[in-house]
Design a protein around this nucleic acid. Structure first.
Length: 825
RNA sequence: GCCGAAGUGGCGGAAUUGGUAGACGCGCUAGAUUCAGGAUCUAGUAGGCAUUACGCCUGUGUGGGUUCGAGUCCCGUCUUCGGCACCA
């Protein structure tokens, strides 16, 4: 008997798939479609186990859905612009383009060796000018619509990467890519107006029922919607100071105001007072501190009195105005009212600066004393010291006070978001050029559509660390102003690579379309993505940007759906020895090594069996051995009795030919049912486990010497069922064995196997018998035996009697075909 | 601090609606086969007490509760992980 030779088999099957162009997919009107998408990789060199896991999960679903009769779009491409290409260029003297395309070649080979069913005819590389020119086109459209704008603002800047980062790309004050410190820098940058969609992006979270709660929570958290009111405080002399608060119920307890150092009034207020000099110095100092530094100050807030006062609109109290380094200019109005009695942060500031504390909310169960208060009371209660609102429950008071303010013209309802606009300028070379020209006379001039693409010159050398060679490329920079024809300069910043990944899923539907950015018919045939699979690390990055971008393209008329991803599965990380795989920790498992030693099928199987997809997978070398053993077991099972069964007709329904045939038939149908249901709900590990159980049962069945053709036909049928069920997981070995058994390949690939409900029901069932909830015995009955006789049988069991002896039976609970519980005492 | 997820054998993990906890795999133990190793096959494997047989007790982080019955539902609590964090 031939051994299981994974190398030969996998090469052979892959060659056949390629020859027959098996994964090619076209739009077939009237056929139900299924768009399965896995997050495309950055071509960093080699694929890692995280990719293998992600794409193995995807391939199971893709192949399964195809077998269920769907027209399945399953594409793959490359997120090909980005920093590492420049770093590699610097380190090794290779051009970023060459480095990138070499990596793509290598990684594509790896993905093919793993046998994933991608339609490679739809492959996209985002650094391809045919791709990014349409991105530039979208940029221009967005510019026209006012969704792109340029402003000078304090931005996150990674000194190491020498570029600006979006808020989403700063993780714990560090750069998401190099993990080094991020500073604040005032720069003029391009922004996408994602905040225009903040409310919709937030509210639609509740409609994304196919997304994990976790991701939706993270997005909601990030967008940060809060309901409140803007209140106008008249300044003592003249002018108005507007603040935002979510707690108007504490308005009577305001004892000071605080402005952000960047607030326009910060310096002007103090002018002419004795505090002027000190205030100026304070503001200067605070402006120097970057965001992360200020965040660390927490319990150590600093502020300074401006010498001016505002008037509380409700009780006319004179309120001193401070400048506080803890007040954020970007949120609300950059100014706050402070209520030390009911806000811990205000409380600490008041204590430090000797400011009064006024209680306005009294809890029901105790009395607060402002002189002995040790921390702010942030709970609920009834209003005191609050004029006509005294006695009201504070939650009710919120609405009443807002109504009052609005009626008197002192304030208005307001919703604020924490989300900021998306800064997309990157001072880098390896990215899509921003299609903008600066003219001394005409100002900012968008590149005319007919002049697109703005091609990234490839004949440049990355010489100096962190300096984009575009800055030194005269041919690129020097340009005639499209408006006046005079001398002008090109924008040298490129776009954030997250812009590319915000619409690649649309381009997959029509990658070769040339007449415009997207072919709407094909986009609408495939969209939305039915199932998206990827890592949770993109929860507030790519997944938020894409939702924004898809909305913009929806409004531009390129796609009918508003939300791009209907269902989302976030797979867990692959870890080893308790840590994420990384070179520095030396716990990396190389997919190439696994494919070489055990084969693609084993590698895939192992990723799918060791843990459910959404959980972290703890890699175990022993686990691979186990999976390899399992496949060898399948191989032996199918080939050992080959001569006895090959010529026979197979069956998987043999219920009237002896007990063990009947039992095996039932096992077969139960397993088909279980595997089908498990794949549908992504319990891939338990799907595999139940196939393993079936394999064990078939082994037992074939151990007995058999000559009867019906029985051998059932053996053959059982093996075929196993191959069918396993095909989406391990396509190579199953196809090979299918062929060895002499079958038509289409029968394996083209249709999933159906089970018969009547064969999933066993006619004998085991009843568990409990006494007072404790299991005492089990016994077998015919399915659906009358309750009374089951009850009687249960009560008369020896082991049961032992526990009921001398006690009175109070109640007997019967759960049909399952359990009897005898309650006695 | 706020939001969220998760705690089950030596390990990875099972247990759709409350109904026999520990499926499947790894590891381990014993036996068969083998010159030996490996591979394969068979049996066993939650812990404890018994081992004369049948057993008996305890067990899903922890303390309560609901229920005939709780890993599953409710309340409290501890731990771990993830996200946000001076957001007014």
């Amino acid at each position: 008997m031939k051994q299981y030779e994974h190398h030969a088999i996998e090469e052979k099957r892959q060659a056949i798939w390629e020859r027959d162009d098996l994964f090619r997919v076209t739009e077939i009107k009237g056929k139900k479609k299924y768009y399965l998408l896995e997050m495309f990789p950055y071509p960093s060199g080699k694929i890692h186990m995280g990719h293998v896991r992600n794409y193995s999960i995807g391939d199971v679903i893709a192949r399964y859905k195809k077998m269920r009769g769907y027209n399945v779009l399953h594409p793959m491409g490359w997120d090909a612009f980005g920093m590492p290409a420049e770093n590699a260029a610097m380190e090794r003297g290779i051009h970023p383009a060459k480095w990138t395309y070499d990596n793509i070649d290598y990684m594509k080979k790896q993905l093919k060796r793993l046998g994933f069913s991608y339609d490679w005819a739809r492959e996209i590389a985002t650094c391809d000018v045919e791709y990014y020119k349409w991105e530039q086109w979208f940029f221009l459209k967005m510019f026209e619509k006012g969704l792109v704008y340029r402003k000078s603002a304090p931005v996150n800047y990674c000194v190491h990467c020498q570029t600006v980062l979006a808020n989403e790309q700063v993780v714990d004050g560090n750069c998401w890519r190099c993990n080094q410190g991020v500073i604040q820098k005032e720069l003029t940058q391009w922004f996408f107006a994602i905040t225009k969609y903040a409310d919709e992006l937030y509210e639609y979270c509740d409609k994304l029922t196919g997304w994990p709660e976790r991701v939706l929570n993270m997005q909601k958290n990030w967008i940060g919607k809060s309901y409140g009111v803007e209140v106008d405080f008249r300044l003592e002399n003249s002018g108005i100071l507007t603040i935002f608060t979510t707690r108007p119920d504490t308005l009577y307890g305001v004892t000071f105001m605080a402005l952000a150092p960047e607030h326009p009034l910060a310096i002007t207020l103090a002018e002419g007072t004795v505090y002027e000099k000190k205030v100026k110095a304070f503001v200067e100092k605070a402006k120097m501190q970057d965001r992360s530094f200020r965040a660390e100050l927490k319990g150590n807030k600093e502020g300074i009195f401006t010498g001016r006062y505002a008037i509380n609109p409700l009780n006319r109290h004179k309120i001193p105005i401070y400048i506080g380094n803890f007040v954020l200019m970007e949120y609300g109005t950059g100014a706050i009212m402070s209520v030390p009695a009911h806000d811990q942060r205000d409380f600490e500031f008041a204590k430090a600066y000797g400011l009064p504390i006024i209680i306005t909310i009294m809890p029901k169960d105790r009395t607060l004393n402002p002189d002995t208060l040790e921390e702010a009371y942030e709970g609920d209660g009834y209003l005191v010291n609050s004029g006509e609102f005294n006695g009201l429950n504070n939650r009710e008071a919120i609405g009443k006070i807002i109504d009052y303010l609005e009626a008197k013209g002192l304030g208005r309802r307001k919703i604020n978001f924490r989300l900021r606009d998306w800064g997309i300028s990157r001072q880098r070379y390896w990215g899509a050029p921003i299609p903008i020209i600066y003219c001394d006379d005409c100002g900012i001039v968008p590149v005319p559509y007919e002049d697109l693409p703005v091609v990234l010159p490839l004949d440049l050398e990355v010489k100096v660390v962190g300096r984009s060679p575009l800055l030194d490329c005269e041919e690129f920079i020097k340009v005639k102003c499209p408006k006046c024809g005079g001398p002008a300069k090109r924008e040298t910043d490129t776009m954030d690579t997250f812009v590319e990944s915000s619409w690649y899923f649309l381009k997959y539907t029509c990658p070769n379309y040339k007449e415009g950015p997207l072919d709407k018919d094909r986009v609408d045939y495939w969209m939305p993505v039915d199932q998206y699979i990827g890592g949770v690390e993109h929860a507030v990055l790519h997944l938020l940007y894409s939702r924004f971008f898809n909305r913009v393209l929806n409004e531009l008329g390129f796609v009918d759906v508003r939300e791009p991803f209907k269902n989302l599965l976030t797979q867990g990380m692959v870890i080893k020895d308790g840590a994420k795989m990384s070179k520095s920790k030396g716990n990396v498992v190389d997919p190439d090594y696994l494919i070489e030693k055990y084969g693609a099928d084993t590698t895939r199987l192992c990723c799918l069996f060791a843990a459910p997809p959404e959980k972290d997978l703890d890699w175990s070398d022993k686990g691979v051995e186990g999976c390899y053993r399992f496949l060898q077991r399948i191989w032996r099972l199918a080939t050992e009795k080959l001569h006895d069964i090959k010529h026979l007709e197979s069956t998987y329904t043999l219920v009237d030919h002896g007990e063990d045939c009947r039992l095996l038939t039932i096992k077969l149908h139960k397993t088909i049912k279980k595997v089908t249901e498990d794949i549908e709900r992504f319990h891939l590990n338990t799907a595999i486990a139940s196939i393993m159980e079936l394999v064990n049962a078939v082994y037992k069945f074939q151990e007995k010497p058999r000559t009867n053709e019906k029985e051998l036909g059932l053996l053959k049928g059982s093996i075929e069922v196993i191959l069918k069920l396993l095909f989406p997981f391990v396509p190579h070995i199953t196809e090979e064995l299918w062929e060895i058994l002499g079958n038509d390949m289409a029968l394996l690939r083209d249709r999933w196997i159906d089970y018969y409900e009547e064969y999933t029901i066993e006619d004998k069932v085991t009843i568990a018998v409990q006494v007072n909830g404790k299991l005492r015995d089990t016994f077998e009955i015919e399915r659906d035996e009358p309750e009374d006789s089951v009850k009687e049988k249960a009560c008369n069991l020896e082991k049961v009697k032992k526990h009921t002896e001398g006690k009175s039976i109070k109640k007997v609970i019967v759960i049909p075909n399952k359990l009897v519980n005898i309650v006695c005492g």
